[in-house]
Every structure is written in structure tokens, then in C-alpha cells.
Amino acid sequence: MASLRAEFTKGLWTVLPPFRLVLGLCPTLAVTTTGINGMGMGLATTFVLIFSNLFVSLLRRFIPTQVRIASFIVIIASFVVIVELVMQAYFYQLFKVLGIFIPLIVVNCIILGRAEAFASKNNPVMSLADGLGIGLGFTISLFVLGSIRELLGAGSLLYYDAAHPGFHVMWASFEPFAFMLKPPGAFIALGILLAFMNLISQIQAQKGGGR
């Protein structure tokens, strides 16, 4: 039971994607113009990750090693098609915003990475916990990055569409940095967040060393 919890929680800090595992950067950079977009992308990825982990783990004894990567990709792609169709039917606004990055979940290295590194070697329950943890970590990261960019770039939080504009949190005379919503802003915001996380880890390590 303890190790099950460990598999779940490691995704939230020690191997938190996309910061610790520098994988899955394309969606991270491209869709985090608002917090909600980031979260939508994160949840779609989590869904695929959980099911691909589960099925890779269930089939791990039947898949020959030589063709395992191709088999994993087919499993992942099947769930991506499901997500694509469901989002098109029920979350059309989000589907339009995320656009090409929904089919591109197939080549998100986090998912293939977990299938190869974890699910193909562990039992289904462990793999589910791993997928859920990593997926939630990814979702939270994207939501935080998206919210920071949205706050600085537009002065609002939780914007979804014109009918659900979220909250305007900045003071009235606040001039938004339009830069943060543009592509260069994405790189720089992620870089600074990553540096900040490194700083926290360093301070933790120093404390640990002093004890």
C-alpha cells in the first residue's frame, strides 16, 4: 500500500513533468495561454496516460519485445482518437483552441516514456497509480503555467470563452504584458518557473545536508 502511494505521489514532485522530466514540452508551451486551456490539455493527456498505462501493463506478457514500441504507439493512438472524438462532441470550444495538439498527444514523449519505463514492467494497479500521478502532475503544471501567463498577459484568471470570461483580478490601471501570451513569452515563463523549482530543490538539499 505504501509503495502504491509512492508511485502516485512521485508524479507530483520528484518526477513532475514537464519540469523534472523535460518531456512533453510542445503542448506545454503551445496551449498554456490560459489556465483553463492548460488544464484541458492536461486532463486529455491524463486520460490517455491512465488508459495506455493500464493496457500496456495488462498486455505486457503478450507483446514481443522487438515490436513493443510500435505496439505501445498503437495503444496510445487508439485512446487519443477516443479523446479527439469525445472532445469534438462535448467540448467544442476547447477542441478548437487546442487544435492540432490533441492528435499530437500520440507523440507526447511522457506517455510513451511511462509505457516503456514503467507500465511494461509493473502490474496494472501500480501502472494506474503511476499514470494518475504523472497525469495529475502534468495537469497541475500546465494549469499553473497557463494561469501565470494569463494573469500577466491578460490580467484575468479562469477565462474560458466570451460567455465565461472568468475573473478580472488585476487592478483597473494594469497594463497587460501581451508578450506573455505570445510564443516567446511561453519559453521565458517556463524557463523562469523551472529555475524557481531548481532553487527550491537546492534549498531543500542544503537543509537536508545541514541536518
Binding site: 516567446p184 519559453f187 524557463g191 531548481n198
Partner: peptide
């Protein structure tokens, strides 16, 4: 700066090129 080493500075450079 130590916190910026590796990927962090890489991302910021990419931002400047962008």
C-alpha cells in the same frame, strides 16, 4: 546562476530567439 543551469537557461535562450 546555479538555478538557471541546463534546461532553464535553454528555454530562456529559445524565448529570446523566438
Amino acid at each position: 546562476p546555479k538555478a538557471f543551469e541546463g534546461t532553464a537557461i535553454g528555454l530562456i535562450t529559445a524565448g529570446l530567439i523566438a
